[in-house]
Design a protein around this nucleic acid. Structure first.
Lengths: 234, 234
DNA sequence: GCGGACAAAATTGTAAACACTTGAGTCGAG
DNA sequence: CTCGACTCAAGTGTTTACAATTTTGTCCGC
């Protein structure tokens, strides 16, 4: 029974963060139901905050709430994932275009460091590290783009995609290919050419979608979480 | 004490819809606090659903929750409104570009009807009707664009902007100017030229933002709701 | 052996109760 | 008269309890 750390936030917000972490971690698998009493006991709180947290996660698209049946971790349908990729391509392209027009030396240095870290991770065949740096690279760009609304939507949609995107970097070639896209984006950013940056960003997202699709069609994963039903219960 | 109509949804969802309506209607003004007990009694429910609904509205950006002080209807800061306009320009441009490549005769007819309705409303100097048709025009386009994710984000952001956008169409010239933009978009859609449609859509959003800005700087509104504090309490 | 109806357990939806924080008003000292 | 501390009311945060629905297990009939 691990109690949540004390913080100056409503309990429901902390529970929401914890549940979000558990979902993205894989502790809670897609299709699984969020048992309110079990989670409440596990987190050392009452059912109220857990309920509120579940409703918040529904609003973000991470869970689905069915009347009198509870909250289930969403299994994002393929068409929704594709729509989300298109949306993210648009947002990421915008972010890169904006940043190309306003990038500072420090920001460029930061992004370059992440790029080189991914290069090393790809060479060492370390998908886990590459995955982490990759997220940081994209999120830093969107943070530097100075549009909080675009950034917020991008982060939210990306989190939703993470429900299964983690497996897209299984092969070393994927990492190298992905990082080549990062390099092109980075060069356009440092060159200060917004439209080129936007172009490479959208292209990069498209190749990411392609990797995602091939990973879906050929799931080289045998854990029970992968083979379980991909549809909602009932 | 008006009880909410029965429906196959959790009470919190129905309460959320009702609160959202009250906020966008103006029944609840920006800066106002959502008194849980009062709203619960007014809606004929308990505090639980009202709390959950308030948290949901926070996630959408319509209210702000402060620990131990409750939920306040948000007063969207200017910079956030500008960021949101930029986001909406991007999304609406995407939607128009998509639709230009796939529009059907029936969809074109539908949009044309809305356009002509707005033309009539502008001639009759009927801002209320123009406002309604204007929303329908944009939402129909986004629905026809066939990307549920982009559509959902656009709708959400637009609702947030509605917290004060309603006053942008006070003058008849604004309506005529706005509808001229609609006409250009519609022609590009029917011509099947995606990039042109995107261009006009983004331009239309920019002029909308300009109207919004001028309406902010010169508030021709004297109701107490407008003159009240535009910042969060305390 | 199989299918359907019934009953009991589990779980969610909702409501009420309790504890704590915040804010205002008042009283008193300087 | 002003400023500060104290008290009390209002309201939120959280927990607990109750009601309604769903699900599952079992039993009976065919």
């Amino acid at each position: 029974m691990s109690t949540i750390a004390r913080a100056p936030h409503p309990l429901s917000a902390r529970v929401r963060a914890e549940l979000e972490r558990m979902i993205l971690d894989g502790t809670l698998s897609p299709g699984e139901r969020l048992n309110e009493v079990a989670l409440a006991r596990q987190l050392g709180v009452s059912r109220g905050p857990v309920r509120e947290a579940a409703r918040l996660l529904e609003r973000v698209g991470l869970v689905t709430v069915i009347l009198n049946r509870g909250a289930f971790i969403r299994t994002v349908p393929l068409d929704e994932a594709l729509d989300t990729y298109a949306l993210n391509a648009l947002l990421f392209g915008f972010g890169c275009a904006q940043l190309a027009a306003s990038i500072t030396a420090g920001q460029a240095l930061d992004l370059r460091g992440l790029y080189e870290g991914m290069e090393a991770a790809a060479a060492a065949n370390d998908p886990e590290k590459f995955f982490t740096l990759n997220i940081a690279f994209h999120e830093h760009i969107m943070a530097f783009a100075r549009n909080r609304q675009v950034e917020a939507v991008y982060l939210q949609q990306t989190r939703k995609l993470m429900l299964f995107r983690r497996r897209s970097f299984d092969r070393a070639t994927s990492m190298a290919e992905s990082n080549a896209g990062h390099r092109r984006i980075l060069e356009a950013l440092m060159a200060g050419t917004p439209e080129q940056a936007r172009h490479f960003a959208e292209e990069h997202t498209r190749t990411g979608r392609a990797r995602f699709l091939s990973a879906i069609e050929a799931p080289a994963c045998t854990t029970p979480a992968c083979t379980s039903s991909t549809n909602l219960p009932k």
